[in-house]
Design a protein around this nucleic acid. Structure first.
Lengths: 350, 350
DNA sequence: TTGAAAGCGCTAACAC
DNA sequence: GTGTTAGCGCTTTCAA
C-alpha cells in the first residue's frame, strides 16, 4: 500500500521540525517564530499538503459541520421556492464561518429521526438546524433532552425561551394582511393554510382571527381551510370555496405557488382575480411579480431566515452556555394587483 | 473534564471482552460467537452506546459521505423545481446505502472551487456529485486530475467515455419536440434556452437544428435565444421575439417556469398561448398540469437523475477500478394544451 | 520557541 | 473465537 496522502509528518520532516510545530504553524500559533513558520509553509507548499479534516475533527471533537433537518421528502416543502432560498441563506451563513452543511436524509418520519440520531451521536455535526417548526416535534425533543446545540427556523411550540430560533412575526403579518382586506371593504375573508401542525400556520391563523375579531367580524369555520399539498394546485379547495353558501370575496393564502394554482382554478370556473376575488399570499416568490395576476404578497425574507439561522447556531457553538436567543426577521407587505376594493367604498391603502 | 461519550472501551469493559471484539460485533463479523454478540449488544444497549463516525472514518479512510457541487448560488438553478427534485433523488439513493450528503457552499466560482478542494483533500467525502455539466469545467478537471471518484449529472463536455455520468437524451428529446411542432404545421420555430455553456442546452440545440434541417427548414439565428435567468420571467425575451420581422409561431423553451413567465408576458402583449403561439417546455414541473395554459412538456425524470447519480457513485466506490459508465434516463413527451396546429392542416399526433 | 508523547475512538493485522 | 497492538492524522499538554 503506497502513501495515500501527505501528512503533517511529511511536512515536518522536510522542514526539519517536529509534527507539533507544523500543527502550530497551521493554527498560526504566535509562539512560533516567523522564520520557522516560513520554512514550514514552504514545505507545505512544496509537498502540496492539505490538512485532514477527519483527523482534526477527532482530535478536536468538533467537525465544523452543521446538520440540516428537513421535513419528510413527500412534503410540500420541496415544492416551492422556500427550500432553495432558505438553503442559500444557510449556506452563506455557514460558509462565512468555514462551516459545512450536512443534509439529513430519509423519506419517513422514522428514517429522518434515525438519521438525526446518527448525526448527533456519531459526532458528525457540531449543531443542528431544524428547517421547520411544528407541534410536538419528536426530533426537537430529542435534541433538547441531549442538550445538543440546535436552532429552529420558526416559532417553537413550547419552551419558547429555552430555544434559540429564527422566525418571522407571522402573527402580525397575517393580521396586517387581513386588516388590509378589511379596509378594502371585504368581510368574507377566507384563510387557506398549509399543514396546520406547523407553527407558522398556527400563528398566522391567530393573526387572521384577531384582525377579524377586532373589527367585529364573526369567524366562520368554513372559511378556514387546510390545503393538503400544492400538488393539485388547490383545484379542490377552489371548488370547495365556490360551493359555499356565501363564498368569500377575499382569500389569504399560505404560499404564492398555491395562490397562483388557485387563481388558475378559479379562472377555469369563471372567477377572476382580483375582479371577483381578491387574494394575498406569502413568500413573495420571484415569480409573484410576473405571474398573472401579479400577486400581492407578504415577503418574509426567506434568505435571511436561513442566513441568520446558520449564524445564530455558529454563535452558540463559539459561545457555549450563552442563553437562548430569538431573531425575528422583518416582513414586508408587497402590494401588487391581486386585491381589489369591495362593497361600500374602495379605499386605497398606502 | 467529565466523560464526553460512551466508547467502545466502555462497552468492552462491561461485556468483559476486548475492544476489538466490540468492533467486530458492530461489523457483525461472523467469527464472533452468538453468545458474545448478545452479551456485547446488551452492554451497548445498557450504556446507550453509539459508534463515533469520525473515529471510524479516520481508521477506515472513508466517511460514507458524498459531496454535492451546485453551481453558484446566483444561478437559475435555485429558481426552479429542478434543484429540490434532483436533491430528493440524490438523497434517496444515498440513504438506501447509508451514505450522507454534504453540500458545497460558496457564492462565486472561486469559493466553490476552494470548497471542493477542501472537501476532497481534507478527506471529508468519499466521492463527488456534480449537479450540472458545462463546457470546460474547472472543478471537473480538478477531480479528473486527482483521479477522485465523481459522477456527473449531464453529458460531459469531453472525455465522454472516461467519465461516469447520468443524463437524459436531450438531443433526441429536443428533436422530437421540434418534429412534433413541424408536424403540427409550424415552420417558424424558436428555441429559447438557458445558459449556453450547459451541455444540456448544447445537446438540445443540436436536436432542434437537426429536426429542422431534416425537414429542409432553414435555421434562423434570430430564432435561437439564450435567456439569461428566470428573474424577469422572460419578459424581455418575449418582447424581442414579437419585434422580429417574422415572429415564430411556436417555441421550444428550456424550462416550464420560464415558459409560464413568457406565456404571461405574451398575454399582456395580446398574444395568447396556444391560439397565437405554441410552446413546448422541459421538466414537466408539478405545476405544468394546472397552470394556464397547461403546458405540453418533456418530462426528463429529474428525481431519477438524482437517484441514479447517487447509486452510480456509490457503486463505483464499492467497486474501485470499475470502468466509467453512463446511465441515460428516459424522457416522456407529455402532451397538454400549449400547442396548436398551424397553417396547412392541423394533424393530431399520438 | 520547539520537541516528545499521549490520546481522540475506531479498525485490522497478527497472534494465540 | 478472541485479545493485543499498532496505527489513521491531528492537537495539545508537559518538558525542555
Amino acid at each position: 500500500m503506497g502513501k495515500l496522502s501527505i501528512t503533517i509528518k511529511d511536512v515536518a520532516q522536510l522542514a526539519e521540525v517536529a509534527p507539533s510545530t507544523v500543527s502550530r504553524v497551521i493554527a498560526n500559533n504566535p509562539r512560533i517564530s516567523e522564520k520557522t513558520k516560513v520554512r514550514v509553509r514552504e514545505a507545505m507548499e512544496k509537498l502540496g499538503y492539505h490538512p485532514n479534516f477527519i483527523a482534526r475533527s477527532l482530535a478536536n471533537q468538533s467537525t465544523k459541520i452543521l446538520g440540516l433537518v428537513l421535513p419528510g421528502s413527500a412534503d410540500v416543502f420541496y415544492q416551492n421556492p422556500f427550500f432553495p432560498t432558505v438553503l442559500r441563506g444557510l449556506s452563506e451563513g455557514a460558509q462565512e464561518n468555514q462551516y459545512s452543511l450536512l443534509l439529513s436524509t430519509g423519506k419517513t418520519e422514522e428514517e429522518i429521526y434515525e438519521g438525526v440520531v446518527n448525526m448527533v451521536q456519531g459526532g458528525m455535526v457540531d449543531g443542528i438546524i431544524l428547517l421547520y417548526s411544528r407541534v410536538n416535534d419528536h426530533i426537537l425533543s430529542y435534541l433538547r433532552s441531549k442538550k445538543f446545540p440546535f436552532v429552529l427556523i420558526g416559532k417553537p411550540f413550547d419552551f419558547d425561551d429555552e430555544i434559540t430560533y429564527i422566525d418571522n412575526d407571522n402573527y402580525t403579518a397575517a393580521k396586517e394582511a387581513t386588516s388590509y382586506l378589511i379596509e378594502l371593504g371585504h368581510e368574507k375573508i377566507g384563510f387557506i393554510s398549509g399543514d396546520s401542525d406547523y407553527m407558522m400556520t398556527k400563528e398566522r391563523l391567530k393573526g387572521y382571527v384577531d384582525a377579524l375579531t377586532t373589527e367585529g367580524i364573526p369567524i366562520k369555520k368554513e372559511y378556514i381551510i387546510e390545503n393538503g399539498g400544492v400538488d393539485e394546485g388547490g383545484k379542490q379547495t377552489a371548488k370547495r370555496i365556490l360551493s359555499l353558501a356565501e363564498p368569500p370575496t377575499a382569500l389569504i393564502i399560505g404560499d404564492d405557488l398555491l395562490a397562483l394554482g388557485m387563481a388558475n382554478s378559479f379562472r377555469e370556473l369563471g372567477i377572476r382575480v382580483p375582479d371577483h376575488l381578491s387574494m394575498i399570499s406569502f413568500n413573495n416568490a420571484f415569480f409573484s411579480d410576473f405571474s398573472s395576476p401579479q400577486l400581492t404578497s407578504v415577503d418574509i425574507n426567506i434568505f435571511d431566515l436561513g442566513y441568520q439561522a446558520s449564524r445564530s447556531l455558529i454563535h452558540h457553538l463559539k459561545h457555549p452556555g450563552s442563553p437562548a436567543s430569538k431573531v425575528i426577521i422583518p416582513h414586508q407587505f408587497i402590494e401588487r394587483c391581486s386585491c381589489k376594493g369591495f362593497g361600500k367604498m374602495a379605499m386605497t391603502i398606502s
